[in-house]
Design a protein around this nucleic acid. Structure first.
Lengths: 340, 340
DNA sequence: TGTTCTACGTAGAACGGTATACGGAATCGC
DNA sequence: GCGATTCCGTATACCGTTCTACGTAGAACA
């Protein structure tokens, strides 16, 4: 064996200098062509493009970031397993690609310190903008970061935020739609399964849905019973089961998310309850599993693709210079299935 | 309104120079502390660390990447909706974090040109290494990229690759285990649902599982019937249904992935077939949905967390200088449930 | 024809770090 | 006590781009 060389130079990169030399022009000229900036003749552009093609040149994002744009957007996801993220991501990806932007993602795992580190990491990578999907961070912290980098937030209600945009499903209205659908089927004893009590600041979607639920029930002159189960509680499934078995549980349930709705429906059937006769259910997110015939869980659809597209468009316009914040709500709709 | 200012300077960044000035030392000294490089006294380190803390300094990844390391690993996922990726990702994330590396992800959407662009993007971002999860790219292309950046591939069999490592589940053995389990329950008329015919090069997991299936059936002296359904075919569900209805379909099925296994099981029950009496099923990936009592689909578990950890460790050792390729197989195990 | 524009192209500083070469002080070996 | 070695810290080149300032040539204008 030979000496422990310090990482043999791996196939030297083609740089802008090589292109300039090959095309017989200045480095700045090549840079201009890359950014299709002002002041390049067709003849020069042609020469440069040929050299770029011949040499297979790709600009270094890192080097670019030091002075100009990186044409990269950072996407921060709560957690990777969440079933309604893919549709949002689709909307983001197609819009970003059409605009010539690349995406790079980080996963926050629903832990705050990790999320802030990821945001900082994306700032450190000189990304041009940030898309936060269902992030848990507080609005104040977000305001601070948003002053350093154009930011758009999805799935986090912060309607008074000044330095970033928010795109949300109209969660209040969504809950009302679900309640009205249950009422229309003749149900009166309606409860809600929600998240909490810890994650309970109004920015999150669950409290918003609670508001809608409470209002819709009040409008019908009915009492609003809300049952909250902690997301991180390991015994959560057991508690949900105990809840189903309790004698005075509601006959119909609006469930804040299919994440809880699917296991609930599942347990109910296994316990021998007839759905919807003994227990009616409407969930939220319209996750793919809810659509399985064996599950057949009615659910509120959030138009994830549209949310993704709108969020990305907002971010691009912010990058282009917009300063005034935009806060948008998208109307959800009910996907009716056999569970209610 | 005022003039269209060119993006008001957003809260000037704290640079290494500010820290140096604040601590009264040279820029190089600060750099050394950051990289805990050789040649710093405790006293100096202390001063610098205090300044870093006071000023809230974070090094720019982009600037770092131009000469040194970025301490960032790129993770390329086939597609975001795949249910067995989260466990792999968990293994990757915990290992990388423990080693002081950050992660940034890209989603290939199972499209080759997109995948190559993402790999190039990660190279352009000066990432220190690449983790490709179930990428579709050909081995030859991978060899080329792997010479530019340390690379480890997961879920893609390429046992002779010289310039990158591969970490895989032992898909041949996994299929054999499933077949043996079906045989042990007395099933003889066993078929396999696989992917194809397009994606059919041996590097992918489905053909590997076909090999194991064929060998195990041959060992039992039974004929091996394989039914392939195209992944991208919009009418795929309809074809699966037609398959279930055909009179000579096998009584037991080994299904290459829960992605097909769950809809199959679902359709079977809806059609009134008894599982496992009329149709026995074993899937692959042990996705969370398979574990739902209403589904209760037996499935091969790939030890995703372990795969993620091993892949990351391999990548780190490659970054540290290892040049000889490693190819590892992890033994899967059956999670027995009521479906067979 | 001389002067002012405009369009094109270039040189060189800047970005924020890392790596290398080097100088001075303290320690070591004999 | 002296040269050699080790330890610590600094100065400076360098990474690959973009951006600013400027020079030059041809066109337009008077």
């Amino acid at each position: 064996m030979d000496e422990p060389r310090p990482l043999a130079p791996p196939a030297a990169r083609v740089t802008i200098r090589n292109v300039a030399e090959d095309a017989g022009v200045s480095v700045a000229a090549v840079s201009k062509v890359m950014r299709n900036a002002y002041g390049v003749s067709d003849a020069l552009r042609q020469k440069v493009l040929e050299s770029i093609d011949r040499l297979g040149y790709r600009p270094s994002v890192a080097a670019r970031g030091m002075r100009g744009q990186t044409y990269t957007l950072g996407v921060l996801l709560v957690e990777i397993a969440n079933p309604f993220l893919p549709t949002i991501y689709e909307g983001i990806a197609s819009t970003a690609e059409a605009a010539g932007y690349k995406l790079l993602m980080g996963v926050g795992a629903a832990k705050m310190p990790l999320e802030t580190r990821l945001i900082e990491q994306m700032i450190d990578n000189h990304m041009d903008g940030l898309l936060l999907i269902a992030a848990q961070i507080s609005g104040r912290t977000l305001e601070r970061y948003a002053q350093q980098i154009p930011t758009v937030v999805v799935g986090h209600h912060e309607p008074t935020a000044a330095s970033f945009d928010t795109i949300n499903s109209n969660d209040i209205e969504g809950a009302k739609i679900a309640v009205r659908a249950l009422l229309a089927k003749g149900h009166r004893d309606i409860g809600m399964i929600s998240l909490g009590p810890i994650a309970g600041h109004e920015a999150d979607v669950a409290p918003q849905r609670e508001i809608g639920f409470t209002q819709a029930m009040a409008a019908a002159g009915l009492p609003a019973r809300i049952f909250r189960f902690d997301n991180l509680d390991k015994a959560r499934l057991g508690k949900l089961e105990a809840f189903l078995k309790s004698p005075d549980r509601p006959r119909a349930l609006f469930v804040w998310s299919d994440l809880d709705g699917i296991p609930l429906l599942n347990m109910a059937r296994v316990m021998g309850l007839r759905v919807p006769e003994d227990l009616a259910l409407i969930g939220y997110d319209n996750s793919p599993v809810a659509a399985l015939p064996l599950i057949d869980l009615a659910s509120m659809d959030q138009e994830g693709r549209l949310m993704g597209r709108m969020a990305t468009e907002a971010l691009l316009s912010r990058i282009a210079g917009r300063k005034v914040a935009e806060h948008m709500l998208i109307e959800p709709h009910l996907v009716a299935r056999g569970s209610f």
